[in-house]
Each structure stands twice: as structure tokens, then as C-alpha cells.
Amino acid sequence: MQKLIFSFLMALASLSAPLQASEPASTHANITQEVNDWLNTSLSNSPGAFSFELRPIVSRLKLDGCTQREISLPQGNRLVGNTMLRVKCIEGANWMFNLPVKISIQVQYAVAARPLAANQEISTGDIAMQQGDLATLPGSVILDPATAIGRALNSPVAAGQTLRQEQLRTAMAISQNQKVKIIFRQDGIEISNEGIAMNAAAEGQPVRVRLDKGKTITGTAQLGGIVDVGP
């Protein structure tokens, strides 16, 4: 009888052993490797050369067996500078923790090559490129100088100062009180006239024009002091 009971207990043990081994505790080393892989993939399309320092997982943190984990960037965090990643078990256990990381991205960014005045239209010679860490720069810093050429400044910029998107606007195609050429096109017929612009306008914006005898019309500003008037 005792031998029968012993055999029964051994059979139960052999059945339970595979179940326990199927969900081993999640190792810190495995999770760290997964986070490193996630960062390398996520940063692969960065505008410059990147590097990162991942803080080690706290050694006393106990992580029950997890067959699938999710790594994400918590809302409000940027994937640059001192930031935070979230590691969450989504299959096999119920835990989540945040992991600090420091990310550096070396980029070329635009600065003023010389003192620039308000309303000045930016040309190639007005821009110089410098190298720096994106983490220390404003989020709106200009990385592609071509996006600034032909636009106008809202306010003065000192030499060497970083150029940012919010400092620039579309350059005015027409100035207030400027003499303009009015063109009316319809059904292949073109009629032109002249007038005085009553407001400044960028290309594509509406502009009011005063004609002879005080009459006014509204058209669309174009480069070269031209106002298109539709049918």
C-alpha cells in the first residue's frame, strides 16, 4: 500500500514539474536586451547619430514569469535626453515598471550667420550650421536649412542664435500701399489693371486693392506684386 501511495505521489510530481518550468521568472538580463533592441530600432530613423545609456533594472525587483512583454514610451516623454521607458508584462504575469534612459542624438542645426532684422527674408548666406545634441536644443529647432530659405523673421535674431520654426513666417508677397498689377482671368481671357494694396499679404493670401475713383476689389496675392482676381 505504501509503495502504491509513493508511486502516485511521484506521478503527480512529474506532471507538475513541466508546468512550473514553462513560466520561469523573467531575468533582468533578458529584459535589458529587449529594451536595448527596442531602442536601437526606434532610434534607427533619427536625424543624427544616436547613443543611449540605460539605467540597470533594480536588482531587488522581482518579476514573475512573463511570456510576452511590451516596451513603450509613456505619454509626455520624448525619445531624446533624460526620459523614461515603460516595460509591461502582457502575457503570463501582471507587472509593470519604468526604466530611466539617457538618449543623445547628434545633429546639424541652423543658427543665424549674422545679426538678422525683423521682417527680413532669409537667404542662404543668413544661415550657418552647427553640431549639437538634440536633447539640449529647442524642439522646434530647424535641422534642414532649406525650410527656412525665403521665409521672413517675426523678430530680430542675434548672430549665432538658434533658428526655430516659430520665429519664421511666410514672406510677404505684397506690402501695404504697394503698387500692384491686377490680373483677371476667365475663359482664356486675361485683363490687367493697376491699383494700390490696402494690406500686406503672403503668397496665396487675400489682399484688398484700391482702384481709381476709390473702388476696391479683393484678390489673391502672388509673388512679383501681382494680384489674381477670379471670376
Rank of each mutant, 00 (worst) to 15 (best):
V101I: 05
S59Y: 07
I226H: 03
L63M: 15
R210G: 00
R60K: 13
A173E: 08
T83W: 07
E23T: 13
S72E: 12
S192G: 03
P145L: 08
R208M: 12
R208W: 11
R208E: 13
K213S: 11
R55H: 11
L39A: 01
A201S: 11
N45I: 03
T170Q: 14
I191F: 09
V80C: 03
Q165C: 03
A200F: 00
P231Y: 12
A171K: 02
I5C: 04
N77E: 15
E91Q: 15
N36P: 01
I5T: 10
K215A: 14
K62E: 09
S72R: 13
F6A: 15
V87D: 13
T136Q: 12
L163E: 01
I189V: 15
P231W: 11
A158T: 09
M84P: 00
A152D: 07
A146P: 00
A11K: 05
C66V: 09
V58Y: 12
K62M: 04
F52Q: 03
G76S: 08
K181T: 15
L143K: 05
N119H: 11
R208I: 03
A117C: 00
S44E: 08
Q108D: 13
A197Y: 01
K181M: 13
L39V: 00
G132W: 01
R86S: 15
S22M: 13
L223W: 05
N40T: 06
V80M: 05
D144N: 15
S7H: 01
P115N: 15
M1D: 10
L73S: 01
A113C: 04
P156V: 07
N98C: 04
D126S: 08
R69S: 08
N98M: 06
V207S: 01
R151D: 04
P231N: 12
S14Q: 08
V141T: 12
Q20P: 01
I71C: 02
I103D: 03
T218C: 02
Q165N: 10
Q186P: 01
Q2P: 02
P231T: 04
F184H: 14
S155E: 14
G188N: 08
I142K: 04
T32I: 10
I191G: 07
E53L: 14
T218Y: 03
